[in-house]
Nucleic acid binder design. Structure first.
Lengths: 138, 138
DNA sequence: GTAGCTGCAAATCGTTTGCCGATCA
DNA sequence: TGATCGGCAAACGATTTGCAGCTAC
């Protein structure tokens, strides 16, 4: 989905543009789901079987720091990633299938800020996941 | 805070009431913060230095399953616990001190259900944490 | 007495890191 | 060429588990 511009990314931080980084960037860019590291590694190896999982970890950290990828923790004790768009959104996880549905709700965003404020804090970040069961089709 | 009735708990599931369980129950009951396993273990050992961390883990799982303790993951990659009251609440974590503030907001609860519904799901559970920075005192 | 518990240490799982040869600017 | 990289395997931190002895019932 979101194209990752490694060239620019590396340029502006004096990093090298290497084959592994190119491949990993492409894989993440193409992901329209929320793959974990193993899944990313699997996809990466389809392109270049020599890339190690350590490199996937290192590169993902790089991307997260650069702000072009978001790391999530959906309570499975392992990281899941998605390309960071400019659109903020939260997640609803289907408890039966593990599927992740993205959503955005302005009212929710506002409410959160208001709650933080009421408690004497400025909202810096938030984590919000809904866990739901698909409603029976009517 | 919330008194844990191990006698009853063990009774109804055919478990033994042992010294370690008694001690751990007391420590958790007395906690008015959100201790992690190491902290629990430390407190437990003040009462009985022989209790191992494995037992703390095992017993906490027991309590969580029994629904008398809640396990949280505030994004530190380790569990934090609190006695489960009948009052549901969410958490705001002070990003500077790590302090946890509990809060409840009816509007928020409603909104979450509404959002899930809108997406075609019945809300089963939710996780919501606000991360805030204390506002400068006026 | 015996099934269930516990301590200990080893195993697991996701993730990080030290080392050293390989590679890109 | 020389600083970065990346592969490999060892290290790590939280948590779990196998085993063998202990204890509540």
């Amino acid at each position: 989905m979101t194209k990752i511009d490694i060239e620019a990314l590396c340029q502006e931080r004096g990093l090298r543009i290497t084959e592994p980084r190119r491949v990993i960037a492409r894989v993440v860019s193409n992901a329209d789901d929320h793959p974990d590291v193993d899944e990313l590694h699997r996809r990466v190896r389809e392109v270049d079987p020599g890339i190690s999982i350590a490199t996937v970890y290192r590169t993902m950290s790089l991307f997260v720091e650069a702000g072009i990828v978001e790391r999530h923790d959906f309570g499975e004790h392992k990281a899941r990633y998605e390309p960071a768009g400019d659109d903020h959104h939260d997640h609803l996880i289907d408890v039966e299938t593990g599927n992740v549905v993205e959503f955005f709700d302005e009212e929710l965003e506002e409410l959160q800020k208001r709650i933080a404020k009421r408690l004497g804090y400025d909202l810096v970040d938030h984590r919000m996941e809904l866990y739901g069961k698909r409603k029976a089709k009517a």
